[in-house]
Design a binder for these strands. Structure first.
Length: 788
DNA sequence: TTTGCGGTTTTTTTT
DNA sequence: AAACCGCAAA
């Protein structure tokens, strides 16, 4: 979508004159289609905007804010606008400023659920038993803390890892459940009945540490609102209008949070797309959007269905796919664009060929002078990225990977932060523990354990305990000296903190602690990058008035550097691609098991499948002009070669809008050609009808007995409909039907990829084979045949 | 206390 | 295949 709207002349809030001036379609309203305009102008009461992909959702949101301000309905400071990501918040802020001018700089309540919650909590911390300088823990801190709690309860940490408890607690918090609210049945799932107890113990630990985790930010706010109605009422007064972006991604806690705040004036506008709900696995409730009209009776519902992004074929393809989902409110995207190029589907022999085909296309585009920053490769799982990267490096196409660890999740940033946290608040035990032996100083578990014991006995913090213990004979002289030096160093830094610029201070701390030196000495490849990150951290430090506000910024808001603006192909997961668009989109790996992902299917059945389909829909709708799908018949998963079938999603695409492309490779000749041709036939003629599919399934039941044989393996590779049916990876299917392997050690075998070899050992259906050319590999027996 | 070996695990990811 | 974790040896 392009916004060429000029900013409206800026009416000053307060005068009747400006309200009158806004009457004949103010500038910012121009260029909106009727639905968009309705979504903007329905200012009062609950509003649900169902905004399909590429229908101008952000534009509606920002224009709506501009409209509220321009018509004097609210001051910027009276509008609460919530997003999920910092990126979305930033973008919205920018675009509102473009429409309304610097007045928008106010917008103090435009932010993520978490940052707004943190802001509220800092103001009223004492009401929920916190001090206003509480620390916000990230996932890593959480898990370390959980481990401690689990150990303290004397539970086998192996059987019940901290990570798992974190998962449980997180999902409880997502649903707005405090320890006492957890249903008994569920709290018993973890550690034979101790789940709820551990949750309570963890919350207790957080309280003594004066810390909260991400989930708590929301949960404590709920407590705050519920237990202090007068406070809630004051926020009703303040927040005249509430706007919510990506409503389909809200979890129960966020929903309750919104409902409490919206209760007062009921001016809440939620924008979302049920067809783009792809975060169910982390607690998002599509139901929130499906239920909106029920929760807010009398709501105005606006559907945005006119797509401004993709050409006809692409849009039709996406629409047809998503129509297969049952749990949806139903929208039909339409475009006035030309039909454009058909969507292509290309089968590759294996994932390497797939990568090669994609890189060839990109090189061709590059030589035609197309802009590589308008090209994206979107994958289902990050494991697919490596192969693509290797290939692009090989052919010298510049690329960038989007996603990956956030800036503040990187070890070096977290270490540096821990040092600073110790300087700012010496009672921060988690921070102290993190850096007490980083760089290695010889203060290991034994020392820490001693400090812990002392701290528990006296009620001191670890730092205080260290100070005390250093004066005793309890530690070996060496450890004692080192620890004393560390404690003294912190005392020194604290005394300097007042007088110094925080950037300088940070540099000093990192230098004197030996932390910088640690990375300078490190010879590993990423050490230089880490030092660079540390520099970046120090640089950004001076943009903040003081250290505490910086720490808050880093733990909640700071993003990884988005890289330079050079023209590069983008590689990312489908999840990371939501909200983005590109002229050309490559979608590799459309295979059963990978996409739809087997695990999603196993764990969530039908709902899982529908979420995968929404993910596919998100992928398809990222493309403006060219959309290219790929599947590979063989892919290495966890080190084993697995044969795979084309994704069922491919069969669900409308044949009029897609085109099957023959891969121009060596494999198209010889034995494989025939089976591929079969696939083409089936795709073109009959794949759509349920009856045909059923027939294929029956055929598969009778026809798939054999586990060896060259031609059989060839058909597996490319025959799509032929073996349609259970969504198993081919190898597993064979393993189940065959039972034990038909091969003995010493047997000569032939593998379609690795050629001839001898069986070295047999383990169920897995063979270890010494191939004459390829060396020793582990393969499934279904991929080899007996050979002489 | 540290290092290295072996056994295990393997989606998606924001705050 | 690779990364991660816990444990045992140096």
């Amino acid at each position: 979508m392009s916004d060429h709207t000029t900013s409206a002349p800026l009416p000053r809030p307060g005068g009747l004159a400006s309200r009158a001036a806004a009457q004949p379609a103010a500038g910012y309203l121009q260029g909106l289609n009727p639905e968009q305009r309705q979504a903007v102008e329905a200012t009062d009461g609950p509003v649900l905007v169902l905004a399909g992909a590429g229908t101008g959702k952000t534009r509606v949101l920002t224009t709506r804010i501009a409209h509220l301000i321009a018509t004097n309905r609210a001051y910027p400071s009276q509008i609460l606008a919530v997003t999920f990501t910092n990126k979305a918040a930033r973008e919205m802020k920018e675009r509102v400023a473009n429409l309304v001018g610097p007045v928008a700089e106010g917008m103090p309540w435009l932010g993520t659920f978490h940052s707004i919650s943190a802001k509220l909590l800092r103001r009223h911390a004492e009401l929920v038993d916190l001090r206003s300088d509480f620390t916000i823990l990230d996932t890593d801190d959480q898990i370390r803390l959980m481990k401690q709690v689990i150990q303290a309860e004397g539970i086998d940490e192996k059987r019940w890892p901290g990570r798992m408890l974190a998962g449980f607690i997180d999902s409880w918090k997502n649903r707005g459940l405090a320890p006492k609210d957890v249903p008994p049945g569920e709290s018993g799932v973890f550690a034979s009945g101790k789940g709820g107890k551990l949750y309570a113990a963890y919350q207790e630990r957080l309280k003594t540490l004066n810390a909260v985790d991400f989930g708590d930010l929301l949960l404590h706010c709920l407590t705050l609102f519920r237990e202090h109605p007068e406070l809630l009422a004051s926020y009703h007064e303040r927040f005249r209008y509430i706007l919510v972006d990506e409503y389909q991604d809200t979890n129960v806690a966020q929903y309750l949070w919104l409902r409490l705040l919206a209760q007062g004036r009921r001016n809440i506008a939620c924008v979302g797309d049920d067809d783009q709900s792809i975060y169910g696995w982390r607690g998002a409730e599509v139901d929130n959007i499906l239920r909106f009209e029920h929760d807010f009776p009398g709501a105005t519902v606006v559907r945005l269905e006119r797509n401004y992004r993709s050409t006809g074929h692409i849009l039709a393809t996406a629409a047809k796919l998503i129509a297969r989902n049952e749990g949806r409110l139903g929208k039909t995207l339409r475009t006035e664009d030309e039909a454009g190029e058909k969507v292509t589907i290309t089968g590759a022999w294996d994932s390497q060929e797939e990568a090669r085909l994609i890189s060839d296309e990109i090189e061709a585009m590059q030589s035609k002078g197309e802009n590589l920053s308008e090209v994206a490769i979107l994958v289902r799982i990050s494991a697919q990225m490596r192969e693509m990267e290797e290939r692009l490096i090989h052919v010298g196409v510049p690329y960038r990977v989007i996603g990956g660890p956030r800036f503040y999740e990187r070890a070096e940033i977290r270490d540096a932060m821990a040092y600073l946290r110790c300087v700012v608040s010496p009672t921060d035990d988690l921070a102290f523990e993190r850096i007490v032996n980083v760089p290695k100083r010889g203060l290991g578990d034994a020392t820490i354990q001693l400090l812990h014991n002392h701290a528990r006995a006296t009620g001191f913090s670890l730092m205080q305990s260290a100070r005390a213990v250093v004066e005793t004979e309890e530690l070996k002289p060496k450890a004692r000296t080192t620890l004393r030096e560390l404690v003294e160093a912190f005392a020194r830094w604290q005394s300097k903190a007042e007088a110094m610029q925080q950037g300088e201070l940070a540099e000093l701390v990192l230098e004197e602690s030996g932390y910088t030196e640690m990375w300078q000495k490190d010879r590993s490849a990423d050490a230089a990058g880490r030092l660079e990150n540390l520099k970046e951290l120090v640089r950004s430090l001076d943009e903040f008035p003081d250290l505490p506000s910086f720490l808050e910024h880093v733990s909640l808001v700071m993003d990884a550097d988005s890289g330079d603006g050079g023209a590069r192909v983008s590689i990312m997961t489908l999840h990371a691609a939501k909200g983005l668009e590109f002229d050309t989109v490559f979608l590799p790996g459309w295979e059963e098991g990978l996409f739809p992902n087997q695990r999603a299917l196993d764990e969530n059945g039908r709902a899982g499948l529908e979420e995968e389909r929404r993910l596919a829909h998100v992928g398809l709708t990222r493309a403006r002009k060219r959309l290219k799908l790929y599947f590979a018949s063989n892919r290495r998963i966890h080190g084993l070669w697995q044969s795979s079938l084309p994704s069922r999603f491919i069969d669900e695409l409308p044949e009029d809008h897609v085109e099957v492309v023959q891969a121009p490779t060596a494999y198209s000749q010889g034995g494989y050609g025939a089976s591929r041709f079969e696939r083409m036939e089936s795709f073109g003629s009959s794949y759509q009808t349920p009856g045909w599919q059923r027939a294929q399934e029956n055929k598969a039941k009778f026809g798939s007995g054999g586990s060896s044989g060259f031609s059989d393996a060839g058909q597996r590779g490319f025959g799509s409909g032929r073996q349609r049916g259970p969504m198993l990876i081919e190898g597993e299917l064979t393993a189940k039907s065959t039972g034990t392997s038909a091969y003995d050690p010493g047997a000569r075998v032939f593998h379609i990829k690795f050629g001839p070899g001898s069986v070295a050992s047999v383990d169920g259906n897995k063979l270890t084979v010494d191939f004459d050319k390829a060396g020793r590999k582990m393969v499934l027996d279904s991929f080899v045949q007996k050979a002489g």
